[in-house]
Computed example of a mutant assay.
Amino acid sequence: MGSLGLAVGLSMLSAASYAAAAVAQERLAEHGHRGRTRWAAALTLTAAGVLLHVLALNFGTVAIVQALGTLTLLFALPISALRYQVRVGPASWVDAGLTVAGLALIMSLSVDSGRPALLSAPAGRYLSLATLVTVVVVGGAAWFAGARMRAVLLAGAAGVAFGIASVLSKAVMASIRASGVEAISPFIVTMVVIFSVVGYLLGQLSYKGAGLAAPLAAVSVTNPVAAAIAGVVVFDERFRFGHAGLAVVAVAAVVITWGVIGLSRRTADGSTDPAADASAELAGDGSADPAADRADRPGAHTEAEVVDAHADPKPDPSTEPTPL
């Protein structure tokens, strides 16, 4: 298997590990963060995802590996379907198809520079400083914005931090391969840790008050974009066919963004086929126990509650839709 095949395979395994870790973390939260087995499962899956991701960076360009990270949302599609007992609808498959098509375009056009992805001390400092400034400016602007925009900005800052942490991780691995462990730069390793922690904290803050869909899409898009730009600048990564290739990559990025936004919304809603859910709720008489069938779904109502709702037509403010 060639380097590209290894990068793709490891990245897909990493994305699957992250998706499984998300499910484990959700179940952990449902049980009040109690249970050693649940903690162990969540931490093990997350650590496996990180390790596989770092290994993938050894065999592929930053642009390819980071873009393949969006497959976490794709793997979350069947997990969500099993979790909420709904079928995967046509719209979800369209979003998945757009994401895969965009990734295929980027993989077909990305070209490694052919030289080791080494990062000099000055380059490492400049990249770290530029990243810190970007994260501080974007994160600071978030506190003066509304709830939804604040979530998007915080998630965007988190995506930048994660993306550059991956770029620096690739440089660390390249140093080890070229000159051994003694060649590792303590400064770059420190910045990897800082950006990873900052990205995690900003990501957690972004989920407060604005739902899950918007920040999930923002971090999924800004992470590979920031990493790809840094890869071109510091590692001399290129794309085939010059300016025409860059134009195609830009189109592919838009296609991926479109698909990622759709997948993020469906993952956040916990549903892959809203039409199927609506039909199931309207067809309550055709089920032996519709309340039991929908007991695990968000917003589910018992038969008695439905009867009461028809008996009292007065509007209930709590049933009005809330923005994502």
Rank of each mutant, 00 (worst) to 15 (best):
H53F: 13
V54I: 14
L55R: 05
N58D: 06
N58V: 05
F59K: 01
G60V: 06
V62F: 03
A63V: 02
A63D: 12
A63N: 07
A63R: 02
I64A: 11
A67M: 05
L68E: 06
L71K: 12
F75T: 05
F75D: 06
L77C: 09
P78H: 03
P78R: 00
P78S: 00
I79A: 15
S80K: 04
S80R: 11
L82Y: 11
L82T: 09
Y84T: 15
R87A: 13
V88M: 14
P90E: 00
A91Q: 09
S92L: 07
W93P: 00
W93R: 11
V94W: 05
V94A: 14
V94M: 13
A96D: 06
G97V: 11
L98H: 07
L98D: 08
L98C: 15
V100Y: 10
A101Q: 07
A101N: 02
A101H: 06
G102L: 11
L103Q: 10
A104G: 05
I106H: 10
I106G: 08
S108R: 13
S110I: 05
G114F: 00
A117M: 06
L118C: 04
L119D: 00
S120V: 09
A121N: 12
A121W: 14
P122D: 03
G124P: 00
R125W: 06
R125E: 00
Y126F: 09
L127M: 10
L127T: 04
S128H: 01
L129M: 10
A130F: 13
A130R: 03
A130D: 00
L132F: 05
L132N: 01
T134A: 14
T134D: 00
V135Q: 04
V136W: 11
G139A: 13
A142I: 08
A142V: 04
A142N: 05
A142T: 04
W143N: 07
G146L: 10
R148T: 14
M149V: 07
M149Y: 08
V152K: 01
L153A: 08
L153P: 12
A155W: 12
A155H: 11
A155I: 09
A155L: 10
G156I: 10
G156D: 06
G156K: 02
A157S: 10
G159V: 07
V160P: 08
F162W: 15
A165E: 10
A165Q: 12
S166A: 13
K170I: 06
A171R: 12
A171W: 07
V172S: 13
M173N: 11
M173R: 14
A174H: 11
S175H: 13
S175V: 02
S179R: 13
V181N: 04
E182W: 04
